[in-house]
């Protein structure tokens, strides 16, 4: 399974790692994400299990996005990096409609702009959550989001 995936993704691959026997991590350029995902979908390789956003911290200045695809025991992770101050990735909802939830999560939790995603509403955070405060970023502090209704 992993070999098949490696072959499908070959064109866009920048580096690959196999951290565990049944895993394959493929580093991609953010611009190649859409065709790479489409290639996996077209070949009916697995399903999107999750999109994880990891803030690498203010020093590294980057956010890493991990697109996990599972097929049986095999897990392929597409790794994409984007600068922290201008986090931006294209949406993969065209080929994977169920990605919409994860992309909404990325937008509100990490402040990643997802271009062309069908729904940009908040998914988890409350309506009165301050704009431009992203809880999953490493430099988030509780004080950034004052608790409402401390008068009650």
């Amino acid at each position: 399974m992993l070999k098949a995936a490696a072959r499908l993704l070959q064109r866009w691959t920048q580096a690959t790692v196999t951290p565990e026997p049944e895993r394959l991590d493929v580093t991609l350029d953010a611009a190649d994400l859409v065709p790479a995902v489409a290639a996996l979908q077209e070949a009916r390789w697995g399903y999107l299990a999750a999109i994880t956003g990891v803030d690498l911290g203010p020093e590294a200045g980057e956010i890493e996005l991990l697109y996990h695809f599972c097929a049986g025991a095999a897990v392929v992770t597409l790794r994409v990096r984007t600068p922290r101050n201008q986090a931006f990735v294209p949406s993969i909802c065209d080929s994977v409609p169920s990605a919409s939830f994860y992309e909404r999560e990325l937008m509100e939790m990490l402040g990643v702009t997802v271009a062309n995603t069908p729904n940009t509403d908040r998914l988890f955070l409350p309506d009165d959550w301050p704009q431009e405060v992203y809880p999953l970023r490493k430099d988030f502090r509780l004080e950034d989001a004052p608790l409402p209704g401390s008068d009650t």
Binding site: F140, L142, G149
Partner: peptide
């Protein structure tokens, strides 16, 4: 971050 505390806060 999303928790206000117990019910008696409200």
């Amino acid at each position: 971050y999303n928790i206000l505390g117990g019910i008696d806060q409200v």
